[in-house]
């Protein structure tokens, strides 16, 4: 799971409190994949169990961690400062050295939805496609607005550049989805036209050609 490795990789910068770790993560990725603080501590606890991080109890020697904790609720792990161990560092190197596998694509709800829809009578696939395209387009507009305004538009720091690249990833992803929907629409219209033995693009209006 990449959050675990991402957190470990950020810890290579130096020892940190859990909430600092979260701030560093969000600095680079915006609010795209929000981390709740509980999740951060659970992950840190597991990393510690696996010997990949160690606790540097909030004493000296961890100058990098500051004297913070101001306003932080009391509780044992919230006052801990964590540091990557040697094993943790090699896990990070391993992560960077290994491509993210595509062999098991994440579940794509939209692809599944359309795959089911085209096989069912009485489902208006054309309308499903159009609604989805409008919704995806609206998200694409949102990402583009974020890209051309705010800190991603004129990156000052590496973390700003990171965030603008994450936005680009979202943009390309949404764009690919719109293209795929266009493609599905065209394929379905052609299939419908062939079934009815009529010339594609003849007088049937709007999306009815793709409707079943």
């Amino acid at each position: 799971m990449s959050i675990r490795q991402a957190m470990l990789a950020i810890l290579e910068q130096g020892p940190m409190y859990g909430y600092q770790l979260r701030a560093e993560f969000e600095q680079r990725t915006g609010e795209t994949w929000p981390l709740n603080i509980g999740q951060v501590y659970t992950t840190l606890t597991r990393l510690e169990r696996d010997g990949l991080v160690e606790v540097v109890v909030g004493d000296a020697g961890s100058g990098n961690a500051g004297h913070g904790g101001v306003g932080e609720p009391l509780g044992s792990d919230r006052t801990h400062v964590y540091r990557a161990t040697e094993a943790g560092r090699s896990e990070v190197s391993e992560w960077f050295a290994t491509p993210v596998p595509r062999s098991q694509p994440p579940r794509d709800e939209l692809a599944i939805k359309l795959a089911i829809a085209v096989t069912l009578p009485g489902v208006d696939v054309g309308t499903i496609i159009q609604r989805q395209r409008t919704a995806t387009m609206a998200s694409l507009q949102d990402y583009t607005r974020l890209k051309r305004t705010g800190r991603a538009a004129t990156p000052q720091e590496p973390a700003d550049l990171a965030w603008s690249l994450v936005l680009d990833a979202l943009v390309f992803d949404a764009e690919a989805e719109v293209r795929w929907l266009d493609h599905c629409e065209a394929r379905l219209r052609r299939a419908a036209a062939e079934r009815e033995g009529v010339r594609p693009g003849a007088s049937t209006p709007s999306t009815e050609g793709a409707t079943r």
Binding site: Q130, T136, M137, Q141, E175
Partner: peptide
């Protein structure tokens, strides 16, 4: 191009 249309305030299909 969807990526370019996304610069608009409104997209009409």
């Amino acid at each position: 191009e969807a990526r370019h249309a996304a610069w608009a305030d409104r997209v009409v299909f």
